[in-house]
Design a protein around this nucleic acid. Sequence first.
DNA 1: AAAGGCTTACGAACACTGTTTGTACAACAA
DNA 2: TTGTTGTACAAACAGTGTTCGTAAGCCTTT
Lengths: 240, 240
Amino acid sequence: MTDRDSLPPPPWVRGANRGRRNLSLNAIMDSAMRILETEGLEATTMRRVAQDLGTGAGSLYAYVQNKAELHELLLDAAMATIDIPEPDPARWREQLMDLLLDTAHALIAKPGVARVALDTVIPTTPRALQLMDGVLALLHAGGIPPRDAMAAADALSLHLTAAAYEMSLTTDPAATARELQRRTSQITQYLDILPPDRLPRLRASLTLFTDGEDAQPDGLRLGLEMLLNGLLTRVRPAQQ
Amino acid sequence: MTDRDSLPPPPWVRGANRGRRNLSLNAIMDSAMRILETEGLEATTMRRVAQDLGTGAGSLYAYVQNKAELHELLLDAAMATIDIPEPDPARWREQLMDLLLDTAHALIAKPGVARVALDTVIPTTPRALQLMDGVLALLHAGGIPPRDAMAAADALSLHLTAAAYEMSLTTDPAATARELQRRTSQITQYLDILPPDRLPRLRASLTLFTDGEDAQPDGLRLGLEMLLNGLLTRVRPAQQ
DNA sequence: AAAGGCTTACGAACACTGTTTGTACAACAA
DNA sequence: TTGTTGTACAAACAGTGTTCGTAAGCCTTT
């Protein structure tokens, strides 16, 4: 298995093993991860983490450049459970789908981490690079030319991340379940006021929409299957 | 053309025609839109809008329930330029692609609005409902069964919104162009430190990645084409 | 061993944020 | 004319990220 063992920390992370006294990057990450798991990303603020460590918010800036960097490190930590397979040309598609679903589940598991992934223009964190390399390897094993593979990997990871983000909006607290109820009732309430010939397709499909709540977790797999099928049947853009 | 004329305001919008004195929802929206266009979504705060109207932040709460609702109204206003076509079964696919690209461009045109679309679990605003109805109409015209059409519309709009959001992260200020440069240089810098046999696929594709900046605007169309192709060749999930 | 420099730690401060509350005022209905 | 309704506004609350000055500690050099 290539690239499964953990990589060394990137050089731009300031205080990897630097803390001489009370604090350390490990301690900060432990506190931040605990807060992330129990209170969500919104609550994972500099002040909250510092309070958990019994210190001031300013002290964290010796180990971390930004709140954004701290969140990115949390994203990297959340991807620890993903393991990248050795490509098997006979099973590459199944392997790829598993890898993508694993990644999505890792993002959903830690609430709010999907938003970090979406906010990060290009992920530069070690595990993100490993993941990208793994996806490219599987696509190459499937016979996809490198130029198409890059574009496909982009589309797949974008879709995956967005779907994970959307799901972590609705599954986090029970409060957002009420929010979803409020939304759908808003729509029906609005449709009742409108002339009955307006928005007919939406009217017809609304029952599928509300029932689709349970089937929505499959929506992720469905979108990814669509993308993969489309990739295989598509006219190559390099030749077009 | 069905549903092209503007719809009446939804009943839950409080002060549609209510302002008896200085303020009004229209004035608030005008100020907010001007600030959105010139300073971005982050700067479009309650206090900033109120200051632009020469009043206090609290006054806005007579016309708008939340900052979130104000942002949603801005999203709705940004979608004003999209026109929904009358489905022509012979050209449905081209029509659909145009509609989706139009929507994406509308989201990108007003900086930060794509984020609002992504944060909104289910868009309930009039124009969003019109758009959804229009997409469903085109899919039905293409012979897609209603159940699949709903799932496809979900996947397409998710992909579209996420791509628009990603693009508005890198195109907004020139500062983020430097950020993108910093990211790629971080990656190469990191790869130089690693053993040269690690992440080989990413190494090989990195040149395509950096060159891909110019071709990235086509990434959106490419992803949507993949989704559409995949939809047409996919085994129907209802029978599986 | 003593001195210097570097870095962590910490609290205070700055400039913000969304939202709530109390009070004053204007306009409409009875 | 009185009363009710809902707008306007300022102040206040509880937060936020980040910067800065100061004090203390450790390591290295003299």
